[in-house]
């Protein structure tokens, strides 16, 4: 008992020192969820979560985790404290990526093999609509102003603009081949889209739905075919955006005003998805083949730590 109290005190003390947030990482090949204390640089524990977990998101109140367990054909609702499963959502087959809307009451799931997006009403645990999109939909995201859901189909090479009021596609934008991930800026004015095959980032204007800028990545000493942009995030002030470059093992830092690439940060192997710390002072990356996550200090713009988490880290979510 004494020991526990001591432990508790110690944790609280550490927490005071540097806001102890928790990082959750899905481990695709371990069928597990890694729970990481990033500030201490430690893997706290690994819990079994289901078959082939990939996409992950945390509810706006930070109480619930949603985890796509692809081979179970469901999205599990997990209590973010106890890490126990408290429900399942009808995601359709083989869910991989999904988007949670800002209100936290709708999930939009890409059903890659069926060329559709499933809209789920979370409170009723019901699929309310299936929207036909292009071939192999993958990346999907909801705009902060709640007006749009953007879905990218990898083989059709399009971004589909879904109106959240009608759950219907209102426009399609042709983009570079194999679009992978997308993210809105905090002001919902721009949509950033990565193309795995062209090695590019495209900035789309939400009003016109047109590409206003294409950024080509070019890393010295890395062949073009290794530059496969995947995850993309943009900070709240739209100062900088970050793109994970897959097997190039780099995260590109992009000036979000000029769209210049400022630098490439070397992280783990096959860097895939990205998440900010709640204060946006750090960025976490999942590194698929080096089995770790990298921690980037965004003020110093340097990689400060890598933390081993398990086999094939895929998605990442952060709880304050």
């Amino acid at each position: 008992m004494k020991k526990n109290i001591l432990g508790l005190c110690l944790t609280v003390a550490l927490a005071g020192a540097a806001q102890a947030e928790t990082v959750f990482v899905t481990l695709e090949k371990d069928n597990a969820l890694a729970v990481v204390d990033p500030v201490a640089g430690k893997l706290i524990k690994t819990v079994e979560i289901g078959q082939r977990p990939r996409g992950i998101a945390i509810s706006p109140d930070n109480k619930l985790l949603y985890v796509a367990t692809s081979d179970d054909n469901t999205i599990k609702i997990i209590d973010a404290e106890t890490l126990k499963e408290i429900g399942r959502l009808p995601s359709g087959e083989d869910p991989e990526t999904f988007a949670l809307n800002p209100a936290g009451d709708r999930l939009y799931v890409s059903n890659e093999d069926d060329s559709q997006v499933t809209v789920i009403d979370i409170s009723h645990k019901k699929a309310v609509k299936q929207i036909k999109v292009g071939v192999e939909p993958e990346g999907i995201t909801a705009s902060p102003d709640n007006l749009w859901v953007a879905s990218a189909s990898e083989t059709t090479n399009m971004v589909h603009w879904i109106d959240t009021k009608t759950n219907a596609i209102v426009e399609n934008t042709l983009v570079d081949p194999r679009p992978r991930a997308l993210g809105f800026t905090a002001d919902s004015q721009q949509l950033w889209v990565t193309s795995e095959m062209a090695g590019t980032l495209m900035i789309l204007d939400v009003k016109t739905k047109q590409i206003i800028k294409t950024v080509k990545f070019d890393v010295q000493g890395v062949t073009a075919d290794k530059i496969q942009p995947v995850g993309v995030v943009i900070d709240k002030d739209r100062k900088r955006g970050y793109v994970a470059l897959g097997p190039a093992n780099r995260v590109a830092v992009i000036n979000a005003q000029t769209f210049e690439v400022e630098k490439y940060l070397l992280v783990g192997q096959r860097v895939w998805n990205l998440a900010f710390s709640p204060d946006q002072k750090r960025l976490y990356t999942t590194n698929g083949t080096s089995n770790d996550i990298s921690l980037i200090d965004l003020e110093a713009q340097t990689v400060t730590k890598s933390i081993g988490v398990g086999t094939y880290p895929w998605g990442v979510a952060v709880k304050p």
């Binding site: 036909k132 071939v135 083989t155 589909h160 399609n172 042709l174």
Partner: peptide, 10 residues
Amino acid sequence: DDNNTTGQFT
């Protein structure tokens, strides 16, 4: 089929 999935939008 893939072409026509795209074709429905174009």
